[in-house]
């Protein structure tokens, strides 16, 4: 039996992908950005003042606080987790910041003799530390005790809201000094301060996630936890840390919100978790873990900000706004799954 010898050259794979699948992959990648630009074009067409620079900065200011928390949430979702407690944590940490800034709770608690106020940085630090500790505690339940993140943070949501109600005793704590208020209401040139804080958080988080060993372990654990463990990664510690990070972000957000409103109360940050999770998911971070980016989260955040702002400008009822956001979350995830299927 003789075999016609075949040349041992491998068939040269043609370098050009067929245009359709290539375009589809590009579309999938840039879909959130394209949708954002389309939405902005639409609002500009319907209400020209949408595109004015005061309004654009207004949008940025509005999204900066939940954007900061969305950055933390990106880490959690990358590990296949979820954190529903952040809205309540924003309220709690805002109150903590307020109490520290006031030197106590008027009539109930004095932190210093005579209730002398602390400087803004002590207030900010207290809020961030409380947020970080609260997040880390939840992380311990998720990582070490393997309680589903959904359950842990659902409980956390109620607990933190309860603590906030206890501290606030049902009412707001308001009236802080200038330097405290600058962080939420101040401007550097034309740029609101919270927007700058948001940008700083984005840049740091983006760098950590893309360029450090820690960031890669977050992706690896979300992609395949068992393989990550067998690669010597400390899965539990990393899991605890992502919840702690989100808590830190919520603490920073709580401080900024109290500063912006010149007031903290237990009902603050209500339903923030909805917008935050929506921003992360719309930005392309996979709820199955292991894929996503901070850049995507920023676009998702802007998308929600633009949508809310545009709807207000167009006088759309807040009830309808909620409906639209929900529809967009489902739409974004459906689109993502559809694209993944089609690409194969």
């Amino acid at each position: 039996m003789s075999l016609v010898p075949s040349p041992s050259v491998a068939p040269a794979p043609s370098l050009a992908r067929p245009r359709s699948t290539h375009a589809l992959a590009l579309l999938a990648r840039f879909a959130p950005l394209i949708f954002l630009l389309l939405l902005m074009a639409l609002f500009t067409f319907l209400a020209p003042r949408f595109l004015s620079s005061p309004n654009l900065f207004n949008i940025l200011r509005q999204v900066s606080i939940f954007g900061i928390v969305a950055v933390g949430m990106t880490f959690v979702i990358l590990t296949r987790g979820i954190d529903l407690s952040i809205g309540a944590l924003i309220a709690l940490t805002g109150l903590v910041a307020a109490v520290v800034a006031k030197g106590g709770i008027p009539g109930r608690l004095e932190l210093t003799a005579g209730g002398a106020p602390f400087a803004w940085y002590w207030a900010a630090l207290a809020a961030i530390v409380v947020g970080g500790v609260a997040g880390a505690l939840q992380g311990v339940f998720v990582a070490r005790l393997s309680v589903p993140a959904f359950v842990v943070t659902l409980g956390g949501m109620t607990i933190f809201r309860g603590l906030a109600l206890i501290i606030g005793n049902g009412g707001p704590i308001s009236g802080f000094d200038e330097s405290f208020g600058w962080w939420g209401r101040g401007m550097v040139g034309a740029v609101p301060v919270p927007v700058i804080v948001f940008l700083v958080v984005v840049v740091i988080a983006g760098f950590v996630l893309h360029s450090t060993r820690y960031g890669r372990s977050v992706y690896a654990i979300g992609s395949n936890p068992e393989a990550a463990r067998l690669c010597g990664l400390n899965v539990n510690r990393t899991l605890v840390s992502v919840y702690a990070l989100t808590g830190l972000c919520a603490g920073l957000g709580g401080f900024l919100l109290a500063s912006r409103l010149n007031s903290a109360e237990a009902v603050a940050g209500n339903q923030y978790e909805l917008n935050v999770i929506a921003a992360v998911v719309i930005g392309g971070t996979s709820l199955y873990g292991g894929a996503g980016s901070i850049a995507g989260t920023v676009i998702g955040t802007l998308l929600i900000g633009v949508l809310l702002n545009g709807l207000v400008i167009l006088n759309v009822s807040p009830y309808v706004q909620q409906l639209l956001i929900g529809a967009i979350i489902v739409g974004a995830v459906t689109f993502d799954i559809f694209i993944k299927k089609y690409k194969r």
């Binding site: 690896a220 395949n224 393989a227």
Partner: peptide, 18 residues
């Protein structure tokens, strides 16, 4: 189940154990 990180690139899979 125990080795591959499906959502990561080839080089990232290679470098996963440090």
């Amino acid at each position: 189940q125990q080795s591959l990180f499906p959502s990561l690139a080839i080089s990232e899979n290679f470098a996963a154990a440090g």
